[in-house]
Each structure stands twice: as structure tokens, then as C-alpha cells.
């Protein structure tokens, strides 16, 4: 059974290419192997970061805590929500937006 492969091309400045060729030689692998392995490792790291965010104690508290804290008015979001509601023909209360300050 053959494994499907795909060709990926990339354009990089000559001086950076020289560094990569040099590094691949130092690692004792082909340039192609070096590039693919390095990119794959970087990709796995980025993908892991897409699954979770590690946050500091302080940030964690502010994200989870403060249930009683007043909600900040997100004026642009409130305006956008209102324009969507108007476009959909939904009733829009004027009261809620009074304190937003346009």
C-alpha cells in the first residue's frame, strides 16, 4: 500500500535557505526531512494550543470569577446585535442601549 504524498512549495530568501541547508547537514538529514520534521513539530504545538489555553492564576480568576461584577458595556457589540435584530424584523428595546453612549 502506498501512502499518498503531497508536494508543498515555499519561497524563502536565499540567506535563510542557506541556514536551513547548513542546519540540515548538521542534523545529518536531508533538507526535505529537516523541513518536514521541523514544520510538523511546530504544527503539533500550534494545534495543541488550539485545544487549550493555559492561563495564569490571575487571568483564570478574572475569567471565572467576578460573577457579581457588573458586565462591561460592549457598545459595538450591542449596536451590531441591534442592527441584526432590526434586519430580522425583531422588536428592539431602546432602554438597554441608553447607557452605552454612542
Amino acid at each position: 500500500m502506498s501512502i499518498k504524498s503531497q508536494k508543498i512549495e515555499a519561497q524563502i530568501p536565499a540567506d535563510r535557505a542557506d541556514r536551513l541547508i547548513y542546519a540540515a547537514a548538521l542534523a545529518g538529514v536531508s533538507l526535505s526531512t529537516f523541513l518536514v520534521d521541523a514544520a510538523a513539530a511546530a504544527a503539533e504545538r500550534v494545534i495543541a494550543e488550539s485545544h487549550h489555553t493555559l492561563v495564569s492564576d490571575e487571568n483564570f480568576r478574572s475569567l471565572l470569577g467576578g460573577l457579581d461584577a457588573p458586565t462591561p458595556p460592549f457598545a459595538a457589540l450591542q449596536r451590531a446585535a441591534k442592527s441584526v435584530a432590526v434586519a430580522q424584523g425583531l422588536p428592539v428595546s431602546e432602554k438597554k442601549n441608553d447607557n452605552v453612549g454612542h
Binding site: L54, V55, L63, P72, A76, L77, K96
Partner: peptide, 28 residues
């Protein structure tokens, strides 16, 4: 940021909004 997301502090490009804040600002 225009819509209320705030940086999380680790990467300047990862931002956060609490769902309950989104909810209260979207509720007309």
C-alpha cells in the same frame, strides 16, 4: 477588541470574552 474581546496576556493575539458577558451584551 472592538467587540469587547480582551487579550489574555500570554500571546497578544489570543483574546477572550466571557460567555456571560457576550450573552448580556447581545440581549436586546
Amino acid at each position: 477588541e472592538h467587540f469587547g474581546f480582551q487579550p489574555l496576556g500570554l500571546s497578544p493575539f489570543r483574546l477572550a470574552m466571557r460567555a456571560r458577558d457576550a450573552r448580556s451584551n447581545l440581549t436586546l
